[in-house]
Design a protein around this nucleic acid. Structure first.
Lengths: 150, 150
DNA sequence: GTTCGTGCAAATACTTTGCAAGTCG
DNA sequence: CGACTTGCAAAGTATTTGCACGAAC
């Protein structure tokens, strides 16, 4: 886990960015989370490490980390944008609309769709994002109950 | 085209909502567009029909139309949310990050993925949204040129 | 007449920006 | 030292809400 931070830091350096404590912290928070984090969650956790980090810095840093490809952003309509580390496999998301439980779906799920689309539409640098939203079994049953009660 | 509005209106009624001129106009604007529209674009077009419609009404109506399933919302990270009519086939989007050119991808592209996921994860009422973002051929070449100039 | 919907203005939330001070290499 | 970053406060945007008036049923 530590080596990830290390190589992330190296990557930033290569691109001519500095390794500030703030950037280090924000990156660490994102990489140590096993979930996606909203800006607020990131802010909260960073402030536990150092209460003086400002929200603007979080915004600016996320922008930076996105631009160098260390962090990915995803956005379910009607929700806050979510951030997660871009290390390891790209993957997709399955979310329960009610309890927000999230599952990661392997990228392979889409097979060679990426290449296929690039060819067919002559697109370049294509990235695919699949968002699957519905109700998990538990929430589904709760909803059924709620409705019969009315 | 007119029959769509008709049946949409009926649907609203069934759900106990009223058929106000504003709702009618907003729905019409969305259904007549062959593209996705941002809130601003919708507002602009609605105001051409009647300059006194307020922005809050557009927000409120979109929320309503989403909730009854007449309109779909999609959201590419870092962009404005986009709205389009939900009539006809569900489909996915391929967008050029630079010029915003948009292509519609048939829902069938994903095969039986929906059913597959519902079974595997015990999810219900699942909807899939695939967003493919990259650079179209033209923009890609422009970007290459810009970079060699530096 | 009662309920629902709208416009307006104000409130809220979210994000970006200018700038002076501080930090890194 | 010079270039890059940060924090703070202010400005911008985007979205939601309270409420009185008007429209629909």
């Amino acid at each position: 886990m530590h080596s990830f931070l290390q190589s992330s830091n190296d990557l930033l350096r290569q691109r001519g960015y500095r390794l500030t404590p703030q950037r280090h912290m924000i990156l660490r928070v994102i990489q140590e989370a096993d979930e996606h984090l909203s800006i607020d969650q990131i802010m909260e956790r960073v402030q536990q490490l150092n209460p003086y980090v400002s929200l603007s810095t979080v915004y600016r840093t996320l922008e930076l980390l996105k631009s160098v490809g260390l962090v990915r952003e995803s956005h379910l309509p009607g929700e806050q944008p979510l951030y997660e580390t871009a290390e390891g496999h790209a993957h997709h998301h399955l979310i329960c609309r009610r309890c927000k439980a999230t599952f990661h779906l392997d990228e392979e799920l889409l097979g060679n769709l990426n290449e296929q689309l690039q060819k067919q539409y002559h697109f370049h640098g294509l990235s695919l994002e699949l968002m699957a939203a519905g109700y998990c079994n538990e929430c589904w049953h709760k909803i059924q109950q709620e409705q019969t009660q009315e």
